[in-house]
């Protein structure tokens, strides 16, 4: 465009600019409204889906995990949404989290599970030193929730609940030792010797004798004894059996398969 000389060129230039910006406003407004429409229709569809399948999502772990995967793929986290919703919900501003948790109740479900996980970890801590195999935890959760009929809980659900507990800084975490996943409810590290003892104990149902540990690790007498003593005295992971035929055995309770009937398993 030829740049005109004189005052008229200036005003024409301003007019062009303003008409461009008016056009751009119109376009972005229409885009925004399209986006809003599609967002709201998406929201409605998701809402319809969530409420239609609410029971399935709560009771069927495979379906729940698929749903969670789908949410993750489209960048929606039902839990995070609920978290922010309940955070600001008290002041009246119910955002996306509000309708989400209303529709699904999955956040509530997950929090409830987290509370039960804490309950079990705390109530068994004196017994196992804060180390619990995740399968054992799932078993206890299932019986606490009233048996299999009340909906199946899986190890993955437990892991998700533990993520919810992160902000509390209570140190709940999962660890895979020797192919078995454990929940550690005490924020303290296990040293490598004790982790290795745990691997060994998993093959024997929990029992460790000084001789077998020595034979399998090649450690010195002192190292074996120290590692086993630490398990018992420092960590509370192990129980001593002084009536064992070969002398003194240590049992790592996290590796022991022990279960009572449904009663009692939640009270102790």
């Amino acid at each position: 465009m030829r740049k005109g000389a004189g005052i008229s060129a200036l005003s024409r230039h301003a007019a062009t600019n303003s008409s461009y910006s008016a056009l751009s406003n119109t376009i972005s407004a229409s885009q925004l409204s399209t986006l809003e429409t599609s967002l709201s229709s998406f929201k409605a569809a998701l809402l319809a889906f969530a409420s239609a399948h609410r029971d399935d999502i709560r009771s069927d772990p495979a379906f729940r995990h698929q749903f969670q995967k789908m949410c993750a793929a489209i960048g929606v986290d039902p839990l995070a949404a609920t978290g922010s919703g309940s955070g600001s919900g008290s002041s009246g501003g119910r955002g996306i989290g509000g309708w989400w948790s209303d529709a699904l109740g999955l956040g509530e479900w997950q929090y409830e599970l987290a509370v039960q996980v804490v309950d079990i970890c705390v109530s068994t801590r004196e017994r196992n030193g804060g180390l619990l195999a995740i399968d054992e935890l799932v078993k206890r959760l299932t019986s606490m929730r009233g048996g299999v009929g009340a909906g199946v809980v899986t190890a993955e659900d437990v892991s998700r609940s533990l993520i919810l507990l992160k902000p509390l800084c209570a140190g709940y975490s999962t660890h895979t030792i020797g192919g078995i996943k454990y929940v550690r409810s005490i924020p303290r590290e296990l040293d490598t010797d004790q982790s290795l003892l745990l691997i060994l104990a998993n093959d024997t149902g929990g029992k460790l004798t000084e001789d077998t540990v020595k034979a399998q690790t090649g450690w010195s007498d002192v190292r074996v004894r120290t590692a086993m003593d630490d398990c018992v005295m420092r960590e509370g992971l192990g129980w001593i059996d002084q009536q064992a035929p070969g002398g003194r055995d240590v049992w790592l309770i996290a590796a022991v398969d022990m279960s009572d009937r449904d009663k009692g398993s939640t009270t102790r």
Binding site: M233, G236, D241, Q242, Q243, W251, S259
Partner: peptide, 20 residues
């Protein structure tokens, strides 16, 4: 009905760790 821990050998040794 004896609970499962009754079959856990170390249950019969008083444990040295105070909280256990």
């Amino acid at each position: 009905e004896y609970p499962a821990i009754w079959s856990f050998p170390p249950f019969f040794t008083i444990q040295p760790n105070p909280s256990t």
